[in-house]
Simulated assay, not measured.
Amino acid sequence: MENLKSNPNSHLTAKERDTLSFPAKILLNKNLIVGDVLDFGCGYGSDVKLLKAQGINIDGYDKFHFPDYPSKKFDTIICFYVLNVLLPEEQATVLMELSQLIKPTGKVYIAVRRDLQFEGFRTHKIHQKKTYQCNVILNSKSFFRNENCEIYEYQHYNQTKRTEKVDCPFCNPDSERELIVESATAYAIYDKFPVNRGHALVIPKKHCSDYFDLSFKEQAACIFMLNRVKEIVSEKFNPDGFNIGINIGEKAGQTVHHVHIHLIPRYDGDVEEPRGGVRGVIPKRQKY
């Protein structure tokens, strides 16, 4: 993945407008901008201002122009033309942030451009600095599409029912379980039978029993999320260390045949002698 420092000018693509953006008009006309609303990546805040004037309870967040990060969860989040100007790692970060900011039963509407003729870095016509753009395809429900844009509707993975692999608890997770964070290809929840406080699972959405059968991209997405979940668990539970593990095959202890990575927080005194860590999967070999 590219270094995030190689894309410092994404904020220069923001535009000032005196009318609602096209995606905002579509959603407003269908009465879908409801409850507490967040415009994530709002740029100069034009939609925020215009929707407020129509009685919408909306806040705006933009890393560059409105940098006060939201401190609550929302019923509706709109995110228009943000992903198109971000590198893949930045896109994944934004999707995870959106999943954390939306209420469990809320909805996120993500608009992406469909009229891009050139992908990559280019010199911005007005600012004369290098800016990035790319086409984006998500695996969420496509709500609207024309030749210029597509709008996706996203809900938490455990709030939508699927008809395939209905017996797999990770393809169809319980809607009552707390979803920690989610990206396009993976999600994380707390273990139903935790070894320790904050014991979390990172799970690819692709149904696959063997971690080594995942593509490199799918593995990388899981590890990228693992880093994020570690930060969340650290802030919430303040552990003294971690064990990370993947069970592959019944002889290695795998009981659910869908890949999942265990992130197990460790605390001072949780076992009499922690030395050896994951070597303890074979107890007599833990100490050496």
Rank of each mutant, 00 (worst) to 15 (best):
N3Q: 09
N3T: 13
K5L: 08
P8Q: 08
T13H: 07
K15L: 15
K15Y: 15
E16M: 12
R17Y: 15
R17P: 06
R17K: 15
D18F: 13
F22A: 14
K30L: 07
I33N: 00
V37Q: 03
F40C: 06
F40L: 08
G45H: 02
L50I: 10
L51R: 02
K52V: 06
A53Q: 13
A53R: 04
Q54E: 11
I58V: 04
D59G: 04
D62C: 01
K63A: 14
H65R: 04
P67M: 04
P67D: 06
K72Q: 12
T76Y: 01
I78H: 02
I78G: 02
C79Y: 02
Y81V: 04
V82H: 01
L83M: 02
L83T: 03
N84G: 03
N84W: 03
V85D: 00
L86I: 06
E89P: 02
E90P: 03
T93W: 08
V94L: 08
M96P: 03
L98P: 00
Q100I: 06
L101H: 04
G106T: 05
Y109L: 02
A111W: 01
F118H: 14
R122A: 11
K125R: 13
Q128H: 15
K129D: 08
Y132C: 03
V136T: 09
V136R: 01
V136K: 00
I137P: 00
N139D: 14
R145T: 15
N146L: 05
N146Q: 06
C149H: 06
I151K: 00
Q155W: 04
Q159W: 11
R162G: 09
T163Y: 11
K165E: 14
K165P: 00
K165D: 15
D167V: 11
C171Q: 11
N172E: 08
P173S: 06
S175P: 00
S175M: 05
E176R: 09
L179D: 08
V181R: 10
E182S: 05
A186Q: 04
A188H: 08
I189S: 05
A200K: 01
I203Y: 02
S209L: 03
S209P: 05
S209E: 12
D210L: 05
Y211A: 10
C222V: 12
C222P: 01
I223C: 02
F224Q: 07
L226F: 10
L226I: 05
R228A: 12
V233K: 03
K236V: 11
D240L: 07
G241Y: 15
I246L: 12
I246T: 00
E250F: 14
E250P: 02
K251P: 00
A252P: 06
A252E: 03
A252V: 03
Q254R: 03
T255K: 10
T255H: 08
H257L: 11
V259L: 02
H260S: 10
H260Y: 06
I264L: 02
I264P: 00
R266D: 09
R266A: 07
D268R: 11
G269K: 07
V271T: 15
P274W: 07
V278Y: 14
G280T: 07
G280W: 06
V281D: 05
P283L: 10
